[in-house]
Amino acid sequence: MSYAYLFKYIIIGDTGVGKSCLLLQFTDKRFQPVHDLTIGVEFGARMITIDGKQIKLQIWDTAGQESFRSITRSYYRGAAGALLVYDITRRDTFNHLTTWLEDARQHSNSNMVIMLIGNKSDLEARRDVKKEEGEAFAREHGLIFMETSAKTAANVEEAFINTAKEIYQKIQDGVFDINNEANGIKIGPQHSPSPSLPSSSGGGAQGSGCC
């Protein structure tokens, strides 16, 4: 399937907050109660429509353990959007947000859209971080915020799609230079200005089974 744009996303946050489960819910619409842990990085992809345009999301799902930070840092490069995830039932995952944010800001392009996500909203009884706290943190740091549940799928679509809308808006406003791939945005094959992207013209157009 052809697409107008391709956005690269990166999902970050402490280990065990549900990054892989969010991705699985978004790409496959299913929930795995016990998911394998992620070592290094895993990938997902899905096509969405914004403003009548087909947009392909290429999602990098990273390992959360502190030790892997130095490796995952290099994966920020060329990301247009980031989902920064914490677990509303574990306060320490919320406390670590500042270091994640520093990392993200430092190693990514300054226009990268960051969505803050408080995951596991279905576990209300075990809640350890108030929704207001998440909202306050997002406001303070200029992030979009949402509470989600990868289990019930609540807000999962919205989280991924609203991030894309924000990126799309930035393109419309001319904030993103779409001809510079370092911004994490690629123009779809059929839109590509003929001389600049010779390599992507063939393979990119083939639809992927996963989408």
Partner: peptide
Amino acid sequence: IHQEFILLAQFLTK
């Protein structure tokens, strides 16, 4: 040999 980045990455990590 025929796959683009995302398919390669997905294939090899799963």
